[in-house]
């Protein structure tokens, strides 16, 4: 079995951590911002790791990693009773974030954050709306949820009407 090395920048909270891994089978040498960990790693099934830090006596730590449904680059991590949200940063991703923040103009879709049924559409095409204003009411799991406009603007398209079933991520209304 050959050695395998990778590097990654992982953001947890407001701190960015530089991680370097070198793995050979179950043996992993990892460095986080220069702090070195020698580990025995066992992955029981996708994303569930049992780590034995070899320099800490018989210590054992279980870590669970799950990718976020909403955002491919975001991970939910649990270490014992603590929960973290982590983002893997790639060289392009920081630039992209900056671009994302600056894009206030242009059409923005309002998407359903859940599968469900449209109860009411509160606006018509051509209406001018404020950021945070209720646009569509979606019912899921016996609850009605008002989805709000992501920006100030004009409603250019209304793609659903009351009674429609929608999937998670479906575009409901476009606001420009």
């Amino acid at each position: 079995m050959s050695d395998r090395s990778t590097k990654a920048s992982i953001r947890i909270g407001d701190r960015l951590h530089e991680v370097a891994l070198s793995r050979r089978g179950a043996r992993v040498v990892a460095s986080v911002d220069g702090r070195e960990y020698r580990l025995n790693v066992h992955e029981s099934h996708g994303g569930v790791y049992s780590l034995l830090p070899l320099d800490e006596g018989g210590a054992q730590v279980e870590v669970q990693v799950a990718t976020s449904r909403a955002d491919a680059g975001t991970y939910h991590v649990r270490v014992r009773g603590r929960a973290f949200e982590a983002r893997a940063e790639t060289p392009g991703s920081r630039d992209r974030e900056i671009v994302l923040r600056s894009v206030g103009a242009g059409p923005r879709p309002l998407r359903s954050v859940m599968p469900g049924r449209i109860v009411r559409v509160l606006v018509e095409a051509g209406a001018s709306v404020k950021r945070g204003q209720g646009i569509v009411v979606v019912e899921a799991m016996k609850m009605e949820n008002e989805l709000a406009s992501p920006k100030d603007g004009i409603v250019t398209q209304v793609l659903v009407s009351a009674g429609d079933r929608v999937e998670s991520g479906a575009t409901l209304v476009v606001i420009e």
Binding site: A8, G13, V32, R35, L51, V61, V79, F84, A88
Partner: peptide
């Protein structure tokens, strides 16, 4: 719920970062 690292060097945060790197590597 999502916590930020509490101290400058927090072992749980380090292990979390390592696990994410491992998961990305396995995925690749």
């Amino acid at each position: 719920s999502p916590e930020a690292g509490r101290e400058a060097t927090d072992r749980a945060v380090d292990l979390a970062a390592i696990a994410v790197a491992l998961a990305r590597d396995s995925g690749a």
